[in-house]
Design a protein around this nucleic acid. Sequence first.
DNA 1: CTGAAAGCGCTTACAG
DNA 2: CTGAAAGCGCTTACAG
Lengths: 286, 286
Amino acid sequence: MTIKDVAAHAGVSLKTVSRVVNDENGVNPRTREAVRSSIAELGFRRNASAAGLRQRQAGGIGLIVEDISEPFQSAIARAVERVAAQNGVLLFTASSSQDADRDRELTLDLSSRPVDGLIIIPSNVDHGYVTKEIEAGLPVVFIDRPAVNIMADTVLSDNRTGARKGAEHLLKHGHRRIAFIGGSTAFFTGSERHLGSRDALGVVRSSNCTIHGKQPQHPRGPPRAHSVSSPTGSRSFDDFELLNPGVTAVAQDPPAMGTAAAELLFRRIAGDQSSAPDCAGAHAPY
Amino acid sequence: MTIKDVAAHAGVSLKTVSRVVNDENGVNPRTREAVRSSIAELGFRRNASAAGLRQRQAGGIGLIVEDISEPFQSAIARAVERVAAQNGVLLFTASSSQDADRDRELTLDLSSRPVDGLIIIPSNVDHGYVTKEIEAGLPVVFIDRPAVNIMADTVLSDNRTGARKGAEHLLKHGHRRIAFIGGSTAFFTGSERHLGSRDALGVVRSSNCTIHGKQPQHPRGPPRAHSVSSPTGSRSFDDFELLNPGVTAVAQDPPAMGTAAAELLFRRIAGDQSSAPDCAGAHAPY
DNA sequence: CTGAAAGCGCTTACAG
DNA sequence: CTGAAAGCGCTTACAG
């Protein structure tokens, strides 16, 4: 079932069917109607892939995450999807499973697809191999963490300021015994948040749990991770799957990040080359 | 950068490059090496879309959900992704936002793409329009809920048995004042779970909250939705975002459902026409 | 072992 | 307002 069959059925040429399908004008209304009813009768759907091939554009963008079932990442995916839909394109999603090889494989695979651009939550590995794609003209935006070994558009949330404000909030409410429990400082987000809490609290002592404290009133050793509860007052990034009552979170607003990244990507696709886009949350890499 | 450029660079024909790219044999090892180094030097990547066009296969499958940021659905997506990767194809994801028009639009859009098959979590609307695609030979598998107005492969979890077993579990542990708090019985899952609890408990009384009870010991009116807590003992389907301690869930195992649906889809794509696949959780529609 | 021609389904550029 | 030809980047079927 191709445009050719429709043309034969309607007694017109290929080109005329193409014109009707693409809502081009300059077609006799009667002819248009005839073609339309042939299309309906035969149940024709144009092959978007063939059209894309000739038009040299894909009609799709790709999103590479670590794990699409992780709430933070699926929220980003949802936002990206929305912007993609607004721009009339579809979204490829793929999870790298925090596997560097898989990450690389997916990127290369996706970039050989009919894909107009790529958004990547980078694993903590070298992304230099994407350079070639970017040089070849494929727009790529990194999100949540900066990619390693590569200059590229990146959308980050301000982890350091967030951590500082979280700590300040606790101070302001009279808390004096405050623990920072964070991911490894070897990674970007953990390191930034660590710095942020220190901005507010100063370092009193630090263990393998990465603890900061200020004016401890009951020095009974560092608080344990699972003792965090409502009366203590606590702040964390993002939501937990199972949250103790009273734990408040410093929202990273993944939808906003996803939207920012996708909008930036579509500006790039449209040809915007500006180096400092006025896009909330978008930063040049450092 | 096409196969043609590589051919010129390596001093061979198009066809020879194609043979190397596709790992076909019958190529002189020396020639093969020459082509390989040209590919590397030029940074060539084959256009998967063009290849798919000629080969009449897509290299991708589509997944339509209501909202990819919803944990149950993103878990399914993750599982589908895994099976897709095992089969060497990429996954398109799209959220219908519970909007019937959008759902339909997405389905038609996706089926015009280079897509070998579709998995759909149907919104509660007529899916008759997919019939045409299915007749045209596009494999489609519905998941979680049966589609309306259409005969198609469907993967469901056994909501009724799950609800019955959940209730029996509570009875067995001595609970006698049991409430069923479920979604509208106008929808498939709500209705099935309602029936399941009734299987175990029988109906004592029912309000607009759809309450079943048995041997109430302290008849102080129906329990309120938010009073469910640990000492009472309770059972629910899936996890909640914020779970009171002690609430146990009847797991629907979305990964297993996603895997089952994807494996069924790939069997269909491979040409399996059997009407009763021995696939855990797969049922013919009724 | 290698290549020239035709074709996948569509659009572009041109001619009438 | 309409159409015939060429081409998008690749693979198929055939010939050498």
